[in-house]
Design a protein around this nucleic acid. Structure first.
Lengths: 218, 218
DNA sequence: ATGTGGATATATGTATGCCTGTATACTCCG
DNA sequence: CGGAGTATACAGGCATACATATATCCACAT
C-alpha cells in the first residue's frame, strides 16, 4: 500500500487523528500560520488539508474567522447516528448474502483485538474496521465511503462512550451477537441487532454530551 | 442571500454548472494553468475549487495527473441511484408528517415551471428544487446535504434522460402523483411512488449510457 | 527493428509575500 | 458614563515564484 504521496494528505491524516483522539479539542481555532510552523511546512498544504477536513465535516471554516474543529451538539450527533443507522443497515443487508466467511473471521479477529487493546485511542479505528468488514460485500463503493466518512466525523465523540466501561462491554456483547447472526446469515436478525446497537450508542452519547456540557454555544 | 464571497467558490460554481450542462464533457482534463488563464485568476483559487468539486464527487484528482471530470459508468450511476433511493425515501418519510402545506404549494409551482421551461439546462435545478422541497421538513440537515450532493454528482447524466421526451412526460406524471400522495399524507404510497420514480430513472439512464457508449474505459 | 534507458518538457505540489476584510480596542463626543 | 466611530492589528485569500515527479520522446544498443 502506498502511503500519502502529498504533504497535504499527511497533514490531513495527522490532524484527523489528533482531532479524533481528542488531542485537539472541539472548538479549537486552527490557525494556518500556527499549524504551518508546527508541521514545518508552508500554509498551502495546511490549507489543502483543512479544506479536505472541512469536506469530511470534521472542521468548519468560517470566512475570515478561520477553521475550527467542528463542535457538535446533541442534535448533530443524533443526525449522524440516524444516518449511520440508515446507511449501515442497508449496507449490511446488501452485503450479508455475498459476504465471504473469511471476512467474518477477519471481523472476529478485530473483536478480539478490541478486547485486548488497552489504548483507547485505537478503539475507534478497530470499531470502524469491524463494522466495515461486515459491509465489505455490499457492492456499493459510495455507500461504504459515506459510512466511513460518518465514522470519521463522529470518532472523537464515540470515545466519550469508552469512559463508560459498562457501555464498552455491552457494545462488545452486541458486536458478538451481530457477528453470530451474520454467520447464520440471519439478515433480518443481524440488521435488527445493528439498529439497536446504534440506537444505544446514540442515546448514550447524546446523554453524555448533554450532561458533560460538551456543547457550549459558540 | 449573499453570493459566493470567495473567488474559489465562484469558480467552483461556474465549473459545476459547466460540467452539469455538458459544456465540459466527461473525462476532460482540467489543467490548473489553463483554467487560471481562462478565469483570469491565479492557480490557487482554481486549486481550491477543484478540491471542492472533488469532495462533491464531480471531478477526480490523481496526484501529478491532474483533475479530470469524473467519468461515470453504468455501475457508478446505479450506485448513486441506489443511494438516492435510500436517502430520499427516508427523507420523505421523515418530512411528510411535518411538511407545511405551503411547501407543497411551492413544490407544485416548481412542477409548473418545469412544464413551462424550454431550456433543458435549467431542468436539473428545478428537478432538484422539487425533490428538496418535499424533504424540507425531514429535520436532518446532513441528510439533505447528502441528497443535494448526489443530485449534483449525477446532474449532467440526468440530462441524458431529457433527450427522451417520453421519459420527461412520464417523469412529470410521477412527480404529480407523488405530490398528490403527499397532499393526502399517504406516507407509504408517496414513498412507493418515489422509489418507483427513481428506479425508472436509474434503468433508463443506465440503458442510455450503455448504448450511447458514454462510458469509455479510461 | 525493437526495446530500453535517459533526458526534457509539462503540470502539479509547495513556498513566500502582499493585500484585503473583519474584529477589536481605544478615543472622542453626546 | 455610555455609545459610536475610527484606527490598528491579525488572519486568511490570492498572486507569484520555485521544486519535483511523471510522462513522453528520442537515441542508442542489442
Amino acid at each position: 500500500m502506498q502511503g500519502p504521496r502529498t504533504v497535504a494528505e499527511q497533514v490531513a491524516n495527522v490532524l484527523r487523528e489528533a482531532i479524533a483522539s481528542g488531542t485537539i479539542k472541539a472548538g479549537t481555532s486552527l490557525r494556518q500560520d500556527e499549524l504551518a510552523e508546527q508541521f514545518g511546512f508552508s500554509r498551502m498544504p495546511i490549507r489543502d488539508a483543512l479544506r479536505q477536513l472541512e469536506a469530511e465535516g470534521i472542521v468548519s471554516i468560517h470566512p475570515t474567522k478561520g477553521a475550527q474543529v467542528a463542535r457538535m451538539d446533541g442534535a448533530e450527533i443524533g443526525e449522524i447516528y440516524a444516518l449511520r443507522e440508515l446507511l449501515e443497515c442497508e449496507a449490511l443487508r446488501l452485503s450479508l448474502p455475498n459476504l465471504a466467511a473469511a471476512k467474518l473471521d477477519e471481523a472476529e479477529q478485530v473483536l478480539d483485538q478490541i478486547d485486548a487493546e488497552r489504548n483507547v485511542g485505537r478503539w475507534g479505528a478497530l470499531n470502524r474496521a469491524f463494522h466495515l468488514a461486515l459491509y465489505d460485500a455490499c457492492g456499493n463503493h459510495r455507500l461504504l465511503g459515506l459510512i466511513e466518512a460518518h465514522h470519521n466525523a463522529a470518532d472523537r465523540y464515540v470515545r466519550i462512550l469508552l469512559s463508560n466501561l459498562d457501555y464498552r462491554s455491552r457494545s462488545q456483547t452486541e458486536h458478538r451477537d451481530l457477528l453470530a447472526a451474520c454467520r447464520e446469515r440471519e439478515g433480518d436478525e443481524a440488521t435488527s441487532i445493528l439498529r439497536q446497537h446504534l440506537r444505544e450508542g446514540s442515546e448514550t452519547l447524546v446523554g453524555a454530551i448533554r450532561e458533560d456540557g460538551l456543547s457550549r454555544k459558540s
